[in-house]
Design a protein around this nucleic acid. Structure first.
Lengths: 346, 346
DNA sequence: TATATTAATGAGAGCGCTCTCATTATTAAG
DNA sequence: CTTAATAATGAGAGCGCTCTCATTAATATA
């Protein structure tokens, strides 16, 4: 079933059918009705391939999201979907699993991106946890395809990104603990191979310095975003003689791990040690009531995903983003895992 | 950059370039090298649209998954991705959110499916929780596009499906409780508007009947797969005078809700009431150690997703599945939420 | 060296649309 | 009723590939 047959059946030319399909003006109402009737009758759907070929546009946006099986990342997809849902664009999907990018030699970013382009996407929305390889950017630039990075922010002037202000978020988190009277504050970082981890560490340091508090190496543990990372990080931190009275974790999952570790060591949260996380994922779990109500810096992942999608849609429609860097603020969500330092009667 | 230009640059015809791109035989080695050099030099990637048009095949498989922000469903995507990862196929993505299908009038199945087809997918892998509307099937059949349903199984002979044996799984779960000596066993169902919920209820009834145990209406609560459903279901069940000593939940999330409700009512799990769930999602959460180690019937979602993808890939490559219904077995995973009935010294 | 056979390559049609531009139908103006 | 203006429609080229079939190059055989 093609446009030719529809035209024949309706007794008009292909051009007229095309006008009807695309809702173009300049078709007499009676003709339009006639054509629409035929289209409905035979359940005609125009060939996407033919359209893409002549328009040089597939109306498909490629997405490369770190690990959608975790709600934190899944929410980005949801946001992106929100952003495209009222448009003619659809989503092509690459890589849903963490290990694929990190450990699978066969699947470097470049190969995944290449695969995306081979399938004809018009633009790409992606998360990059590790700092983007120069080679990857060069590749994207060379194929001249619009791309937007979410979650991570780069100082490369070529990259459009949507992310949270990690320095400020970490600063706010640390400062919240300081305001509660804590002076000895630990930090289990997120991945320091990414700008995200580095920025959060920087925010932590900024807050400590500004408050005139000493930054102790033994209070900073190189971690990651997983439960396990938080678990081991917390063990390490709490094993010191002068253990901190509060710990800032680079992610909520790692904070959960830290809380678990503290309990295992016979320490109460927050009575013995306060804990603050980052991300704000708790509510995304159906079983959130079973999880510690962790105090955290919430990232508006849904909004950010949506924003990225909207920017991309507009871009593909001819309106290049007028900024390179779109920054959101992480919001402090007070849970039950922080309390004022008991010695301190503020 | 198109095949014409590559041909010109390499001093050969378009046909030869095409042969090289597609790794077809009958090209002299020296010619092949020459063409490949040009392709590499200009970073040429063939137009997906043009290819699709002439081949009448986009090599894109559409997926319609219930709610990817929950790991249970996200795992299906992971499995599907596993199944296509070593092939030339890619994934197009529709609908990531529960509400979109259930509550958004604008997004009926048919519209989503139509959208998928408009974007040119070759086949569709989808989850349908509610029983598939006859109209939806008719539509899919009318556009003659291969589709595979995962997670739900229909007795419509036209539908290829990959799912778990829900009757047997529920039977096994209930029987496990019976073998532990329980005689008064409750059931918080999953959605009874879906075959899944009905089948699990049936399995429960089968086991009870076979054991000669009475099926009490007050022990069966119409629920759903969410935490909330389990929570309210459990409250209802435990409020009866002769409350059951064990409860089978239609999902793990609802089991979590049930466990939470029991605790709230001052009852211990499993000492006062045993709980068994369905799905086997606990390990998919990074913070699984913080969750009750619920006894459950694990569904091999990853394998099922992979299988569906493989079936689809083969189908699109010309080999129609030789069965209509692919059934997996749910596997009993013994956790810490069940114990023998104390009165019973078996 | 001439001929038969096989390997390598090219010419050209066609996939199903869109879009420009020419043509025809319709209405308005004189 | 004729002409000018506008509205509606159609003809046809072209998007970038694939694939068949014809042609030419290379090799084997006599």
């Amino acid at each position: 079933m093609n446009i030719e047959l529809i035209a024949k059946k309706a007794g008009v030319s292909r051009a007229t059918v095309s006008r009807v399909i695309n809702n173009f003006p300049g078709v007499k109402e009676t003709t339009r009705k006639k054509v629409e009737a035929v289209i409905d009758e035979v359940n005609y759907i125009p060939s996407a391939a033919a359209r893409s070929l002549v328009r040089k546009k597939s109306n498909i946006i490629g997405t490369l999201i770190y690990n959608i099986t975790q709600p934190f990342w899944g929410n980005y997809i949801s946001g992106i979907e929100d952003g495209v849902s009222s448009t003619d664009y659809g989503l092509f999907f690459a890589n849903s699993k963490e290990h694929t990018i990190f450990w699978d030699e066969q699947k470097t970013y470049k190969k995944i991106l290449r695969n995306l382009i081979c399938h004809g996407v018009d633009g790409i929305i992606m998360t990059f946890l590790n700092d983007l390889d120069k080679e990857d950017i060069d590749f994207l630039e060379s194929v001249k395809i619009p791309y937007i990075v979410i979650q991570n922010c780069f100082n490369d002037p070529r990259i459009v990104s949507v992310s949270v202000d990690n320095v400020k978020g970490a600063y706010d988190a640390t400062n919240y603990l300081i305001k509660l009277g804590h002076v000895s504050i630990g930090h289990v970082t997120s991945l320091l191979t990414s700008g995200i981890g580095k920025d959060r560490l920087k925010g932590y340091c900024n807050a400590m310095e500004q408050a005139g508090l000493e930054i102790l190496n033994e209070n900073i543990v190189n971690g990651g975003h997983s439960f396990k990372d938080g678990y081991w990080g917390m063990k390490q931190i709490l094993n010191h003689e002068n253990k901190p009275t509060a710990v800032f974790f680079g992610s909520d999952e790692s904070a959960f791990g830290g809380i678990y570790a503290a309990k295992e060591m016979g320490l109460r949260v927050p009575e013995d040690v306060s804990v603050i996380g980052f991300d704000g994922v708790r509510d995304t779990f159906d079983h959130s009531l079973l999880l510690p109500n962790v105090t955290t810096m919430r990232q508006p992942t849904l909004e950010m995903g949506k924003r990225a999608a909207e920017l991309m849609v507009n871009w593909l429609d001819g309106n290049e983003p007028n900024q390179k860097v779109y920054i959101y603020e992480a919001e402090l969500i007070e849970g039950d895992t922080c309390m004022p330092l008991s010695n301190d009667t503020n």
